[in-house]
Design a protein around this nucleic acid. Structure first.
Length: 356
DNA sequence: TACGCGTGGCA
DNA sequence: TTGCCAAGCGT
């Protein structure tokens, strides 16, 4: 052990957390936790699912809406899946919403509405992986689980100046995190690690001068904090092209359909679309669901998904009020359009079709 | 093991 | 404009 770098102490981070913890809607503040206030496992679980790969700023409004609509796991289990998808629309990664509902159903039916209080029990539930199981066990049940998320990976890789790139470094990071996870206040420790990563030990321009773990941090000493964690370069995103068909009935209703339950935007709603491919035709209205006088919108809708760019040509047409929706489709009245389970890209397409 | 899976904010 | 990124999971 290099004598210049003492081991990072959990207590040092907990002292910092007691002074600087972020106030979040799903969190029991450290002073209340110390007085014996315990978190609601339902709220901890819901927040953890929403926060997967998603920013706190984006989650807040959805968390408030969900807990208003469905205050506990039994209420969510009693809900229609379609309503859950509508409430999740815009948040992204829609398999999370399907798994959220499946998990609520399982907890209500098989566990009498109580979440399991161990990592093993939690990780067996839909949508709960190793990170989320550890986080719920620690935060909701104060178990000394090793909680490793993207924040922890960044903090630990900097403290130890780990040269191994992610994801190969994950086993080392897990072991190093386990070694400093305390038996007392493990839930606050996990949340403190995330707050440190989110506020001081940030990806860009970390505020090392304010960090409670400045002394043990090798990257800080070398002035290279921002270069960790090491990562393999990412592949460039290809561009796919396609079409969307926005049919508007004379009373303003718009034709929608449901996407297949799995895969991209699985289970969400959309105006009819063509298949998307790099060389797809964007002017063949024979692919449209109805035989109408289709007109092309001038500006295509651009949208970027995780692994490709989409350039979608939007076609629009007026339909007579008597026209029936094809099998599997429905006319969504204009005043209900905002409440449909439309992902953001499809909201853009509908807006383009209505605006032209 | 590696890939598929959304979105919005920011430099 | 473009790339990068944010509390990962399922297959």
């Amino acid at each position: 052990m290099d004598q210049r770098f003492p081991a990072p102490e959990a207590q040092t981070l907990l002292d910092w957390y007691d002074r600087h913890a972020r106030a979040l809607p799903w969190r029991v503040p450290p002073e209340a936790r110390q007085r014996g206030v315990v978190p609601d496992p339902y709220r901890v679980w819901l927040s953890e699912i929403m926060l997967q790969q998603t920013t706190v700023a984006a989650v807040k409004a959805y968390f408030e809406a969900f807990t208003q609509k469905w205050p506990d796991v039994n209420a969510l289990a009693a809900a229609d899946e379609a309503d859950v998808m509508k409430a999740w629309a815009g948040l992204g990664y829609y398999s999370r919403a399907r798994n959220l509902k499946a998990c609520a159903d399982t907890v209500a039916r098989d566990h009498a509405g109580k979440f399991p209080d161990t990592e093993e029990g939690l990780v067996a539930l839909p949508g709960i992986g190793p990170y989320t199981a550890a986080a719920i066990a620690a935060i909701a049940f104060d178990r000394p689980a090793t909680v490793v998320d993207g924040n922890v990976e960044r903090v630990i890789s900097r403290i130890h100046a780990l040269e191994t790139p992610l994801p190969q470094a994950k086993p080392d990071i897990r072991a190093l995190t386990a070694a400093i996870t305390p038996e007392t206040r493990p839930g606050d420790f996990a949340q403190a690690m995330m707050d440190l990563g989110a506020t001081l030990c940030s990806p860009k321009r970390p505020a090392c001068s304010l960090c409670p773990w400045q002394a043990p941090c090798r990257a800080q000493a070398a002035g290279t904090s921002e270069t960790f964690p090491r990562k393999a370069p990412k592949a460039a995103k290809p561009t796919r092209r396609g079409m969307a068909f926005v049919a508007v009935r004379s009373d303003g209703a718009v034709l929608l359909r449901r996407r297949p339950p799995k895969g991209l935007l699985g289970g969400m709603s959309e105006p009819p679309t063509s298949t998307w491919a790099p060389d797809a035709a964007i002017d063949d209205t024979k692919e449209a669901p109805l035989d109408l006088d289709w007109k092309r919108c001038q500006t295509p809708v651009r949208h970027t998904f995780t692994h490709f760019h989409l350039e979608m040509t939007v076609w629009h047409a007026h339909a007579p009020s008597t026209m029936l929706a094809p099998e599997g489709h429905w006319w969504s009245p204009r005043h209900e359009l905002g409440g449909e389970a439309l992902p953001t890209v499809m909201k853009k397409a509908v807006a383009a079709g209505l605006g032209s």
